[in-house]
């Protein structure tokens, strides 16, 4: 196991947690106004592995993912009950700072959303707001470079860091967003269908990248494509109608699921 440095908030001693569990959800329910979108989800997310969330659309995958960094706080009508812990610490505790939480649990979205800034500033934005000493120019340049290298984008953009990030191709933009997330040095990266807007070649690059990132980060990915889940993830959770139906080793889920609904889904009988 690689020990991860957490620059923003010290990792708390998850005393009674098995240290291979990074995040855990207990009995999580989510409501959008009157409508309930998640029903008592219990899930443990292991450290330094890739966990894939699959299921037919509208089953609550994104909803669950957005609970993990409290992105649902942005939606006024969303309400959540239950417990979610990061390293044994309740992330919905009243005294927890949501800004710090999101620095530890980064997110990559379905549609690439680079800021209307230069490539360099897109990456530097996160570290700057978290007080990375921006007076030290070379440090920042190094951080930007390593982030872009880790995201596999460095070779393509190293000569045009001052150009707008919005001018890149879709796949490059998505890798820029990944680099941007990495630059904050998060512990967990959440990805919501990161490849759904990309072509197969760009998709392959990102999948390769995820495999490399696994050694440093814990990754949770929502995906529509079962092949993708099978290719990149070690563990898979299957959601159906707001319920977590089944969770286990990816191999097992795809070859020998316990639940009939999972069986139907992976054999393409619905969704």
């Amino acid at each position: 196991m690689v020990e991860i440095s957490a620059p923003v908030s010290p990792v708390s001693e998850g005393a009674n947690q098995a240290d291979s569990v990074k995040m855990s959800a207990r009995d999580v329910c989510v409501y959008y106004g009157e409508k309930q979108a998640l029903f008592g989800v219990n899930l443990q997310i292991p450290t330094n592995e890739i966990m894939a969330l699959i299921g037919p659309s509208g089953c609550g995958k994104s909803t669950f993912l957005r609970c993990l960094n409290r992105m649902n706080d942005v939606i006024p009508i969303a309400r959540i009950t239950g417990d979610i812990e990061l390293d044994g610490e309740d992330i919905y505790a009243p005294d927890l700072d949501v800004v710090e939480l999101r620095a530890r649990v980064g997110m990559v979205f379905q549609k690439p959303n680079p800021f209307p800034k230069s490539i360099f500033d897109n990456i530097a934005y996160g570290p700057r707001i978290h007080g990375f000493s921006s007076n030290n120019k070379t440090d920042m340049e190094e951080l930007v470079a390593t982030s872009l290298q880790k995201a596999g984008l460095w070779e393509e953009v190293k000569d045009r860091l001052d150009q707008p990030g919005t001018g890149l191709s879709g796949g490059q933009q998505q890798r820029l967003c990944i680099a941007r997330a990495i630059a904050v040095k998060p512990e967990v990266i959440l990805m919501d269908e990161p490849c759904s807007a990309l072509d197969p070649i760009a998709t392959a690059k990102i999948e390769e990248l995820m495999d490399e990132l696994r050694s440093d980060y814990t990754i949770v990915i929502v995906t529509h494509s079962m092949q993708q889940a099978a290719r990149v993830s070690q563990r898979t959770a299957f959601f159906h109608l707001g319920v977590l139906v089944e969770e286990g080793d990816t191999d097992k889920i795809f070859t020998n699921p316990d639940d009939e609904r999972t069986q139907n889904y992976i054999t393409g009988r619905f969704g």
Binding site: M71, V74, V99, E100, G106, N113, F115, P116, A181
Partner: peptide
């Protein structure tokens, strides 16, 4: 909205998001 969420997702506060992402956009 995706720009706002992108910024929040990096741990930016609302005022940082407004000043540095939304207003330039």
């Amino acid at each position: 909205q995706s720009l706002r969420e992108g910024s929040y997702g990096l741990g930016a506060t609302q005022s940082e998001t407004i000043k540095q992402v939304i207003m330039p956009a």
